[in-house]
Amino acid sequence: MKHIRQLEDQSIYILREAYKNFDNLGMLWSMGKDSTVLLWLARKAFFGHVPFPLLHVDTSYKIPEMIEYRDRLAREWRLNLVVGQNKKALAEGMNHEKGRIACCTALKTEGLKLLLEEKGYTGIILGVRSDEDATRAKERYFSPRDKNNDWDFRDQPPELWDQYKISFPPGTHIRIHPLLDWTEINIWEYIKLENIPFLDHLYLDQGTGQRYRSLGCAPCTSPIKSTSKNVDEVIIELRNSKVAERAGRAQDEGRGMEQLRKDGYM
């Protein structure tokens, strides 16, 4: 498990750099396995504390168990939970039937943008990983976003050794990605190693022969066929799988992700 500890040390270093250098910092938490590992790493980095707010951009279409789990951990771990929502778009009836990219853009990208504007965060910590999709493979650990939240992937700043981008012009913000080098398997290995509480009812087979591999909004996320009933079985399943992790996520089809991410999607 030495490689997992190396990843842990690197992520903790990044989290501490973020905490030191950004006055107005927040961490996105979707209650999925990745951002929950990220939350756990923050507790490790700050000795049981989480010294910044956890932000949840609520689309209102999440699976109900996720909200229950969110509120329980927030209570038990004394988290400062901030929930944002694009209420205007929801009031106008936005849902996935109006187009998946349109729905993701309105409820997630715009929802996040509204939350950032309202609270004035200058640093946002996210649990994205390189192996999720090809555009995330090109991310920096500390990645600048301009005033419109746009990602200029053509001209990313250099990132040398452990020296990250910590200064930026007013009005812009930095996206911080401590899990960039983790793979899906690494996430599960770490959950097992540290015994991190996760949404086992959704991520493990409950006897129906299926489980969720990636969690999102209920209408756009479908479970995969799987008989993995515990974390060990999930790890073995993934080692032998050649299906992409986000295969169950509808918005990734075609060039969806490049466009979404360029415009500020997580």
């Binding site: 390189s130 192996d131 090809a134 493979a137 090109k138 992937f153 053509r154 990313q156 960039l180 080098d181 793979t183």
Partner: peptide, 8 residues
Amino acid sequence: TIDTARTF
């Protein structure tokens, strides 16, 4: 290739 890609 414009930017570095990390692959596993």
